[in-house]
Simulated scan of single mutants.
Amino acid sequence: MSKKQLGAAPGDESSPETGKRPGWFGRLRAQPGFRAAAVAFVLTVVLGIGSTVAYAYWGQRNTVSQSVTTVREPLPAVAGEVQCSQPVTLSVVRILHTKVAALPPDASLVASVVGPGSQTRLYAIPNDGVFALRDLPGLGKSLSWGDRISISVTTAYLDGSPGSLPAVVDEAKVLDRAKTEPKPVSAYYLASFFCS
């Protein structure tokens, strides 16, 4: 093989081949410090891209969170007394209370039923001024023969919408209650509800 076929001898990269005019890259390669400059250039480009990617990743990971506290209207109290009503002809126990005229739109009316052992069940009820004890979901099943219950009505702010009323409300979902509430009324359970 000829020298032309084999290429330049090792260690002779910087000298151009004799008899041939070098191109622009050959002339650039022949300059002293070319390799160091090329390595520095490649590192600058690679690290520059790396820093851009790292900055973008950091910007994506470090988001700013902002919390906003809204001031709610004070809850109005339920006026008047809560009463237990048991018409003889219907034999359905109804709890009567004063309808709250100025109830804020995101507030609810809540009935609190305290049973044996101070077990409390909460129900979101309609603001109609009346509700039947038998309509409160699961109340009858939670009571035994002869159990006495105490029922009170108040206004409250709830975490989330209670859905169709009346509805069971978890105590943890009650954010705030009215400062005052009417005196509770009593009833008892004997396979059905009766006023005390």
Score class of each variant (00 low, 15 high):
residue 51 S to D: 12
residue 86 Q to R: 13
residue 98 T to K: 06
residue 130 V to S: 14
residue 54 A to S: 10
residue 89 T to K: 12
residue 110 V to N: 10
residue 117 G to C: 11
residue 49 I to C: 08
residue 61 R to F: 03
residue 68 V to R: 11
residue 63 T to C: 12
residue 141 K to Y: 08
residue 87 P to S: 03
residue 119 Q to E: 12
residue 49 I to R: 09
residue 150 S to V: 01
residue 111 A to I: 02
residue 149 I to E: 01
residue 72 R to M: 09
residue 147 D to Q: 04
residue 126 P to T: 06
residue 124 A to Q: 06
residue 49 I to L: 14
residue 51 S to A: 12
residue 138 G to L: 01
residue 57 Y to T: 12
residue 145 W to M: 09
residue 109 L to Y: 04
residue 73 E to R: 11
residue 116 P to R: 13
residue 50 G to H: 07
residue 62 N to H: 14
residue 139 L to C: 09
residue 76 P to K: 07
residue 108 S to W: 02
residue 122 L to Q: 05
residue 89 T to S: 12
residue 128 D to T: 15
residue 111 A to F: 00
residue 74 P to E: 07
residue 71 V to R: 13
residue 119 Q to S: 11
residue 67 S to I: 14
residue 100 V to Y: 02
residue 114 V to L: 06
residue 48 G to M: 08
residue 98 T to R: 05
residue 135 D to F: 08
residue 121 R to N: 01
residue 75 L to G: 01
residue 69 T to C: 03
residue 139 L to M: 04
residue 130 V to C: 09
residue 53 V to I: 15
residue 61 R to I: 09
residue 117 G to Q: 08
residue 72 R to H: 12
residue 57 Y to W: 14
residue 118 S to N: 15
residue 102 A to W: 00
residue 127 N to A: 11
residue 138 G to N: 10
residue 58 W to S: 10
residue 121 R to G: 01
residue 76 P to A: 05
residue 99 K to H: 10
residue 68 V to H: 12
residue 115 G to H: 08
residue 144 S to F: 10
residue 74 P to W: 02
residue 61 R to V: 13
residue 98 T to A: 15
residue 105 P to K: 10
residue 114 V to G: 00
residue 48 G to P: 04
residue 118 S to L: 10
residue 65 S to Y: 05
residue 70 T to P: 04
residue 100 V to F: 04
residue 115 G to L: 06
residue 53 V to D: 07
residue 151 I to G: 01
residue 55 Y to G: 13
residue 63 T to G: 09
residue 54 A to P: 04
residue 83 Q to I: 07
residue 118 S to G: 01
residue 89 T to A: 15
residue 50 G to V: 03
residue 104 P to I: 06
residue 137 P to V: 09
residue 101 A to S: 10
residue 145 W to A: 10
residue 100 V to T: 07
residue 98 T to G: 04
residue 117 G to A: 11
residue 73 E to H: 08
residue 66 Q to T: 15
residue 148 R to V: 02
residue 51 S to T: 11
residue 92 V to K: 11
residue 102 A to V: 09
residue 51 S to E: 08
residue 137 P to E: 06
residue 149 I to T: 03
residue 72 R to T: 13
